[in-house]
């Protein structure tokens, strides 16, 4: 492994993790660099969400290290960490009567030093980016599942983008963000994430089930099967029927995308 781990990146260094004597992550090494979208793909139970949870610092690894810009992540305080990396978990339930704007405003909580004006403009930008500006005054529990998901996305955008110092790398970890979205909003959300990765030097890691969505928006892809790394690299290298069979136990045909020939298109048999 020749990768430099002390530069700007969020990195897993030979991380293993087991639960109830079952190995869930088996010596995984991978890096998330600012400016890229990293897709995490795998069958159900392959360890995708666990990988994301270890990457976020929420779950401690049994072996190996997690490094944020070269610093061991568990040496950082929860507050410090929240200013550097942001997590969108699957399906955030909320039983309380909060307004959409209040939910989105929570993205600024790790930055209590900011003025109300700065926070307000960050909220406005995030609401637009997540295409929920029209919902700003609605009550969160009244929204549909998809709308709630986009509001949560706006919240993590505030946290990922607000008060960023020049040259500071931030990381955004999204766990199946498209699960409850229609195709238009799936593309909208991932498109926004890809654009921000490039423009704002965000490192975005995203757990996905749709291989072709990943091929469209991810700069690099990690394939996981039974806790082990099957392949990692740019979509054209990783999305091959051999790797895909290993990952999903399913035969597939990979062709060039009719409109974007540089991009692979996966057709499962």
């Amino acid at each position: 492994m020749t990768t430099k781990l002390d530069g700007n990146c969020l990195a897993l260094d030979t991380v293993s993790l087991s639960r109830r004597n079952k190995l869930i992550l088996d010596r995984i090494s991978c890096q998330l660099y600012p400016g890229e979208v990293l897709g995490i793909l795998g069958a159900n139970g392959a360890g995708k969400s666990t990988l994301l949870n270890v990457l976020s610092g929420e779950l401690p690894a049994d072996a190996g290290r997690v490094l944020l810009d070269g610093v061991v992540i568990h040496d950082m305080s929860v507050g410090e960490l929240a200013r550097r990396r942001t997590v969108l978990p699957q399906q955030a339930g909320l039983a309380f009567n909060l307004a959409v704007r209040e939910v989105v405003a929570m993205g600024a909580y790790p930055f209590p030093e900011l003025s109300a004006r700065d926070v307000a403009s960050a909220i406005k930008a995030a609401l637009q980016c997540a295409e929920v500006a029209h919902l700003a005054e609605r009550r969160y529990p009244e929204l549909s599942g998809g709308e709630q998901q986009r509001v949560q996305f706006a919240r993590v955008l505030v946290q990922a983008l607000i008060a960023r110092n020049p040259g500071e790398a931030r990381y955004l970890l999204l766990d199946e963000p498209t699960a409850s979205l229609d195709p238009r909003h799936q593309h909208g959300l991932l498109g926004a994430a890809a654009m921000l990765a490039k423009q704002e030097q965000l490192g975005v890691a995203v757990v996905l089930h749709d291989v072709n969505l990943a091929a469209t928006y991810c700069n690099r892809i990690v394939l996981l099967a039974a806790g082990q790394l099957v392949a990692q690299g740019i979509p054209a290298e990783v999305l091959q029927s051999g790797y895909l069979r290993q990952t999903y136990q399913l035969d597939s045909q990979v062709i060039a995308h009719p409109q974007h020939p540089e991009r692979p298109l996966v057709l499962f048999a």
Binding site: V78, G79, E80, A82, A92, L98, M106, G107, Y109, Q159
Partner: peptide, 21 residues
């Protein structure tokens, strides 16, 4: 008030928002 709001979202969410849960 901030921590309490974050708790409404969920304990994991609160943790990710920087509150030592």
């Amino acid at each position: 008030w901030r921590g309490l709001n974050a708790l409404l979202l969920g304990e994991r969410e609160a943790l990710h928002l920087g509150f030592p849960i």
